[in-house]
């Protein structure tokens, strides 16, 4: 019994060594811009790895925004492949290129793959992750799926490690299952900062909980996405009171701009 136990331990150690040596190979990380998250991630989100983002169905768009942000950070002006299922588009809406451009990403770099089912989507993702010309590959799933098991996850991880591309899995309306992902996030929508100026209204903000981190601690942060700088940041807190009712607000006149710069 103990002999078997020690043999198992030895094998585990071997696997650990193989994995860490691979991981150490590409230990280049990209800072997110949010200091708390970056320190937990030891400098930023790892390239050449798989990261999972889970959320409840209604927070789908917030999670999409977060994944878009991650993809923008890690892809560094290289092409981005976005794989999604037909069903996901019906349920959560289609990824809008105008919206993507508004977040500060370049729609020219995005290739969209509309896979009919989960199997085709997974296969395409594995293919794409093996291509070193891509900066990041996003796989968008809606709902629980049997296809995405530990084996599939390991395949993706190995492909990503070999090529250097980063895999981002967006799992909407799904519960986490065992996987070989480097990090796992749980996403919720966050309010606009209280009492913000109009310029901060509706700035994409996320309540991101890091529930798994293979090489560091976990945590939970409110992050804001800076569309202009194309990075995350701490939420902006404005001391000013809420502005007046918006319905009859004058159209964006010059003085509003002045005020914003001052704020």
């Amino acid at each position: 019994m103990s002999a078997r136990g020690s043999a198992l331990a030895a094998l585990r150690g071997q696997i650990e060594r193989i994995e860490t040596s691979d991981a150490a190979h590409h230990h280049d990380r990209v800072a997110l811009g949010h200091s708390g998250a970056d320190s937990a991630l030891k400098g930023g989100i790892a390239r050449a790895a798989i990261h999972e983002v889970f959320c409840e169905g209604r927070y789908g768009t917030a999670a999409t925004g977060f994944v878009t942000g991650l993809a923008g950070r890690v892809s560094a002006r290289r092409p981005l492949l976005w794989v999604r299922q037909d069903f996901s588009e019906r349920e959560a809406g289609a990824l809008s290129m105008s919206g993507l451009a508004e977040l500060g990403l370049d729609p020219r770099r995005l290739v969209m793959v509309r896979a009919a089912d989960a199997e085709a989507a997974l296969r395409t993702t594995a293919d794409a992750l093996a291509c070193d010309a891509l900066g990041a590959v996003v796989l968008e799933f809606w709902g629980e799926t049997r296809q995405f098991d530990l084996v599939a996850s390991r395949k993706l991880t190995l492909a990503a490690q070999a090529s250097g591309a980063t895999g981002l899995l967006l799992r909407m309306a799904a519960n986490p299952s065992p996987s070989t992902a480097e990090t796992r996030w749980l996403l919720r929508a966050a309010h606009s900062p209280p009492g913000a100026l109009w310029s901060a209204w509706g700035a994409p903000s996320f309540d991101a909980e890091l529930v798994r981190n293979r090489h560091g601690p976990v945590g939970r942060w409110i992050m804001e996405w800076k569309c202009d700088e194309c990075q995350f940041s701490e939420p902006s807190a404005y001391p000013q009171p809420v502005a007046a009712a918006p319905a009859h607000r004058p159209h964006q006149a010059g003085f509003v701009g002045e005020q914003r710069k001052a704020g």
């Binding site: 768009t61 878009t68 289609a94 990824l95 809008s96 919206g99 508004e102 310029s199 202009d228």
Partner: peptide, 18 residues
């Protein structure tokens, strides 16, 4: 692509229903 307005929050949604 049309340039986005600087220092504005997104004016168009990220997900659009067909």
């Amino acid at each position: 692509w049309p340039a986005r307005t600087e220092s504005e929050p997104p004016l168009r949604p990220l997900r659009l229903f067909e």
